[in-house]
Design a binder for these strands. Structure first.
Lengths: 171, 171
DNA sequence: TGCAAACCTTTGACATTTCAAATATCTGCT
DNA sequence: AGCAGATATTTGAAATGTCAAAGGTTTGCA
């Protein structure tokens, strides 16, 4: 089966292909992208298989887990990099499943606060433990020293990117 | 307002939050994920704004660009990490826009081969050039030496992850 | 020859994603 | 009081994503 191999080919030959040489920045990006995709697909698969949950749901519950008092949907959106419109449906489904509860506080009726239910807390605790294990497993072949170093260096990448966004560049 | 900062907080506090300390692997993963998301959102934004295209479309056209004779949909799927069912619709839309053409070869009528049209080649060439520039821009603050080093080290991460997948580990 | 197994693509049901526009609600200022 | 503008969330349309199942086609082997 060529199927199994295909996963190695992936995104890295997207652009550079035509003329072998390509800028280092592009190469780095393609590798980051494909690596991230590889790992998150694996996590997705396991979340689904073992807990019947999706990755966005996991992200969202993670935020609520650490804020026992719940979070407003807007806050949730920012912390999870999930857009506003998205949070609505996500929370709706989690509420339907009984893991999250929605409340509108008295002070401000525009606001909706989402909070984990007990079932939600229990489920998330189990998922978080498994999740951490999966990552250690997937990164088992890496020199522990390199893991820490990478963390720091990728911080540089993130800072640089953050510094050159087109978004609010209009002032 | 903590609001403005929020974009920096993002995914990295997802899981580790509850008990400040967390495994280095987890920290690395969260940072990779958030960085990748940040950059790809920026690329998405610019592709849309300047070319009216989406990232998956860009990926797909990139593959077809380097294979002037076209690719079967299954091949396309593997090379882009887009699932089979997905390629169908993606190609359909690109065909409707006149950038891609579908042909069924004589030898095997199960097969559909997708190929860039002339308009597709022209469009992609422009997008690829811009895309490369955006990346250099976003990574401008990084030490060029670090870019190359990172590329190599992330290769290690990818290899390790590839080595511990649950999926096709059955041979 | 003839049919089961393998192969390639499409379909279908859902969940998620993006963006933009619509809804509510609150706040500040006149 | 009363309305413009800021805030918070929801909605909607279109595209993408997953997975599983269904459709044709081709192949290999009895």
């Amino acid at each position: 089966m060529a199927e199994t191999e295909a996963i190695d080919v992936d995104l890295e030959i997207i652009v550079q292909g035509a003329h072998g040489r390509s800028k280092p920045e592009l190469r780095l990006w393609l590798r980051m992208l494909s690596t991230t995709k590889l790992i998150s697909q694996e996590i997705r698969r396991r979340l689904r298989a073992e807990f019947g949950a999706t990755l966005p749901q996991f992200d969202l519950m993670a935020q609520l887990y650490r804020e026992k008092d719940g979070l407003r949907l807007g806050e949730l959106s920012k912390r999870t990099m999930v857009t506003n419109g998205n949070v609505t449906g996500l929370v709706e489904r989690l509420e339907a499943d009984g893991y999250v509860q929605r409340v509108t506080p008295q002070g401000d009726r525009r606001v909706t606060v989402a909070k984990l239910t007990e079932a939600g807390v229990t489920l998330f605790a189990a998922m978080a433990a498994a999740h951490e294990g999966w990552l250690q497993d997937m990164m088992a072949d890496i020199d522990p020293h390199a893991v820490a170093a990478l963390w720091s260096e990728i911080g540089t990448v993130k800072a640089s990117a953050n510094n050159h966004l087109s978004g609010g560049a209009f002032e």
